[in-house]
């Protein structure tokens, strides 16, 4: 396969790009379906999740399970259906064979039949390809709404 996809200042193969596209689709569908075990299974054993919406980084599958299960429980309590859409996927080869990605992830919630944009986020991942499986080793999620508040507060 000689097709290449231009992303940032480098290129990755079309095969890698499409694998990553589907990886995110599977991962977000698992999360939105409330299948936290499947969602956690898309991280490495020592996977890290960092967000400006969280007080501390979450490390390891046990922590990720608690994070995901807590979010699902809160949504269930509200009667909300959540969808994470992944757009604008940029992929860059990283040193050591891993991949860096940057994506826009708007989050939509539907409550009582009304769908709204809950927040806009930027997701930055370090992905590893282990035995043919993509896994997240390090994820940083920046919520734009919280970033804007933080900037407004410091101005």
């Amino acid at each position: 396969m000689s097709q290449r996809v231009q992303t940032a200042n480098t290129t990755v193969s079309a095969e890698i790009y499409s694998r990553i596209d589907q990886f995110y689709a599977v991962q977000m569908q698992a999360l939105d379906d409330g299948d936290i075990a499947a969602w956690v299974d898309t991280f490495t054993e020592d996977g890290v999740f960092v967000s400006n919406g969280l007080p501390d980084p979450v490390e390891g599958r046990e922590g990720l399970t608690a994070l995901g299960s807590g979010a699902v429980a809160r949504l269930d309590e509200q009667g909300a259906i959540r969808r994470h859409f992944v757009f604008n996927v940029i992929v860059e080869p990283a040193p050591g064979g891993s991949l860096w990605t940057t994506c826009y992830v708007p989050v939509f919630d539907t409550i009582d039949g009304v769908t709204t944009l809950t927040t806009s986020t930027v997701m930055r991942d370090e992905l590893l390809d282990l035995d043919g499986r993509l896994l997240v080793r390090y994820r940083t999620v920046t919520r734009d709404d919280l970033l804007a508040k933080s900037k407004a507060g410091s101005a």
């Binding site: 396969m1 079309a14 499409s18 694998r19 589907q22 990886f23 599977v26 499986r133």
Partner: peptide, 13 residues
């Protein structure tokens, strides 16, 4: 080379 998700059989590029 097949591409796709980590679950089920994948489709070609």
């Amino acid at each position: 080379t097949p591409v796709g998700s980590h679950r089920g059989d994948t489709v070609s590029l």
